[in-house]
């Protein structure tokens, strides 16, 4: 059974422990600006919502990449940036309709969630279980993916 990140915004307090854990895992620094997961604040509503890549089955970023720099991690199903191949053209950043691939100005390459190879640091760091890493069936992500693919690509 493939696992996926499950996000429950109702439990999020906006503390950004996930962003620090993510950036520390990936960049070796506590740097929310480089986090692959971002917490958005809905000030007026009083809500916080962590947000990251859902690892679409048929990933738009991957298809749009001109140089085969987004590949699938066979263990986790994650779509992973192959740093050595990414030229930094940013086509994936506009192709991903979820906005979850971002350009890193420091490295000149793009970054996205890679599920930390199957042990996501964000989920471990979250103090309220707003982010958990669970069986994909339970996340509702499949529905979201299907919806995304239909609405963007036609009714295949």
């Amino acid at each position: 059974m493939q696992r996926a990140l499950h996000i429950d915004p109702g439990k999020c307090t906006g503390c950004l422990q996930c962003e620090m854990a993510c950036s520390y895992e990936n960049e070796g620094l506590f740097n929310p600006a480089k986090s692959r997961i971002k917490v958005f604040t809905f000030h007026h509503e009083g809500r916080f919502a962590p947000y990251t890549c859902t690892q679409c089955a048929d990933a738009w970023c991957q298809k749009a990449c001109p140089v085969d720099a987004i590949q699938i991690d066979r263990n986790t199903g994650a779509k992973v940036i192959v740093e050595a191949r990414c030229v930094g053209c940013k086509v994936c950043t506009i192709a991903c309709p979820f906005g979850t691939v971002n350009y890193n100005t420091a490295s000149g390459k793009v970054i996205k969630c890679d599920l930390c190879g199957g042990d996501p640091a964000c989920a471990k760091a979250c103090p309220t279980a707003a982010i958990t890493y669970i069986d994909a069936d339970w996340t509702g992500l499949d529905k979201m993916r299907a919806y995304a693919e239909q609405s963007l690509a036609g009714t295949a």
Binding site: K38, K90, T93, I94, A95, C96, P97, F98, G99, T100, V101, N102, Y103, T105, S151, L152
Partner: peptide, 14 residues
């Protein structure tokens, strides 16, 4: 703008 740029496509195309 270089963060979450893709949502512009998402909003338009949905």
């Amino acid at each position: 703008l270089f963060q979450h740029v893709g949502v512009l496509r998402g909003l338009i195309q949905r």
